[in-house]
Amino acid sequence: MIYLEFFLSFLKIGAFTLGGGYAMIPLIRKEVVEKKKWIDDEEFLNMLALSQSVPGVMAVNAAFFVGYKLKGAKGAFCTILGSILPSFVIILLIAAVFTRYRHLPQIEAIFKGIRPAVVALIAAPLWNMARAAGMMKTDKHKYTNRQIIVSWLLLALPIASALLIWLCNISPIWIIIITIVSALAIVEFRKRRSKL
């Protein structure tokens, strides 16, 4: 009953990982590479690269890859269902209860404390994310002055997008589309220039 195994493995991954996508990677690896040996480490890395290049929820993309690779559409159906079912059921229960009781003064008080915390949780990783993306370089031994200056100038991109969304109410989707088109144009331009 490989299908049931698919479903249960991903059900476990979905039910026991808190904090979303990236927190799931080690658990997925342990389950599908180490325990079940459905794919090997090299394939696992390919799976990560692919599920991160495709938009959408990374864990679901990863579930698709494993299920589809081993047993086609039926396999993918089982792994995906397993990975989303815990979230779906738990959130439904909470949403049903929460919409009924959210106006109780006790619940209101709790969420008055939580709301600013949520904003901080969203804002805090920005610094590290920017550095991970190759912005704000400081190491003078590793990079040339030009690379350091460019890496700081690149900050203009996220700052401009944040301001456009925040102040001009522009949809993030437009910003993503413009980024994709410009990136393609830049790659094409570089390719042609290097041929000359």
Binding site: I122, L126, S161, A162, W166, I175, T179
Partner: peptide, 20 residues
């Protein structure tokens, strides 16, 4: 190229979510 461009932009998207 596209993935690198998006990595810069995603930082801005998340910053906007916090600002909003």
């Amino acid at each position: 190229g596209v993935m690198q461009g998006l990595r810069y932009i995603v930082v801005g998207l998340i910053a906007a979510a916090a600002l909003l």
